[in-house]
Write a protein that binds this DNA or RNA. Structure first.
Lengths: 232, 232
DNA sequence: GATAAAACATGAATTATTTCAGCCTTTGAA
DNA sequence: TTCAAAGGCTGAAATAATTCATGTTTTATC
């Protein structure tokens, strides 16, 4: 983590700023901006740690992060993976001080940490802004609900198909070459052993549904993936 | 569903009214009350249907409801079970018009359907109220996240232990005799076959952890249940 | 370039889970 | 009271998933 004084990016180009400006005058946004800090996180770095208290809201400007839950046994579970630009608030951070999971950068990420107190005080002045923010974070939450349902109720074939579809359509859509999860990470996401992931992926590979090029996964047949997903 | 004109219960005793009163004058609450309707739902009745559009927030005054997700294949999954009094908003209803799951009464329920438009307009006037509501619905959401994690990552023993603990401590705490889920419902909650539920429960029964008295389940040894839950 | 660590891969043995077939019990309606 | 339907229960067979043992490839580091 590099605590730079210079700006990583221009606030004028930030979607959070754009959203805010619709609901408040510049001087109110200025309070938020002044109390915020821009940081860069490298691959593997923890942005927020599970169990720690945090008074900040994370705005992910650029990059991909995983929501990581760690059991006492040391096992990790990836709850979801998202790409910026996105406001990562809601359940973990927005209204709770203790993080229920960690946020970990999966590639180089530009992040803005927004002070919760300042945000709250501004939000109280501008209820429409608060409503809009709630809608955003609720949306993100909804998409992870579908992940959860899939993980809880489908077999490994269907779970992995769902994960591939999700990652492709929601996360790596615009830059599929960055799609480089390890088998272990896919296993932590799909809630199964990494051997099972490997076997399932090579089965998909043999059937021509995907192509494995080393780490990189190329999806050839979305229709079949959707079929597998539906079958469970 | 009995669309009675008379009041099922006195608004003065409602927790939602109590919450509201802390943040707004009586005349504003009156707008919410006027646009709301009290209804009684019998066991098995659907309060809100998955896929339908709804412009209302559900306040569960009394009773137990399940959050039911139905796949195209016709299979049902219970996402969570909650007891009143509780505001059932957030992900399903608060900010989305299409319900992503159904709400089904598991016993006789007193429910108040609050008009979303009226609520929104009042909420915009009183941002602290909106903030408080977000906190409530977020809390409920958090607890269901832990359910999901358990369902996705534990084996049937651990999942059923978790469900028993959850239902006991959060739902049927005050009236354990109402604890009458069918084995099929437990299976839909635990994401496994109902035979597996039956086998696991009779195993727990033989080990003295629980006692099966027909449909009723009595929990004897919470410590062992927690052990099983931890082991996974 | 050598080396160590991590990731990837495969198959066999073990364990977990579902499916199936059969039967008993309870419940509610005719 | 009878009957059908639904729920509960059990064990065996089939399927799915994990664990384990082993070896290869890739990646990072010195």
């Amino acid at each position: 983590m590099e605590n730079s004084n210079r700006s990583l990016y221009d606030c004028q180009k930030c979607m959070f700023k754009a959203l805010s400006s619709r609901y408040m005058p510049p001087e109110d946004f200025e309070l938020i901006r002044r109390t915020s800090v821009q940081l860069q996180f490298e691959k593997g770095e923890t942005i927020l740690k599970q169990g720690a208290t945090s008074h900040q809201l994370v705005y992910l400007h650029k990059g991909v992060v995983k929501f990581n839950y760690r059991y006492e046994t040391g096992k990790n579970y990836i709850m979801t993976i998202v790409s910026g630009p996105k406001l990562l608030g809601g359940t973990n951070l927005f209204f709770k001080e203790t993080n229920i999971f960690s946020l970990v950068a999966m590639e180089s990420c530009d992040v803005c940490l927004i002070d919760g107190k300042a945000l709250r005080s501004v939000a109280q002045k501008h209820a429409s802004f608060l409503l809009a923010m709630c809608e955003r974070t609720t949306e993100m939450f909804q998409s992870s609900i579908f992940n959860f349902i899939s993980m809880a109720h489908k077999q490994v074939n269907g779970r992995i198909a769902d994960i591939l579809i999700y990652l492709w359509e929601e996360v790596y859509k615009n830059n599929p070459d960055d799609f480089v999860l390890t088998r272990k990470e896919i296993a932590e996401f799909a809630a199964c052993s990494h051997e099972n992931v490997i076997n399932t992926l090579s089965k998909f590979n043999k059937e021509g549904i995907i192509t494995l090029e080393g780490k990189r996964i190329r999806i050839n047949d979305f229709k079949k993936l959707h079929d597998i997903s539906k079958r469970g």
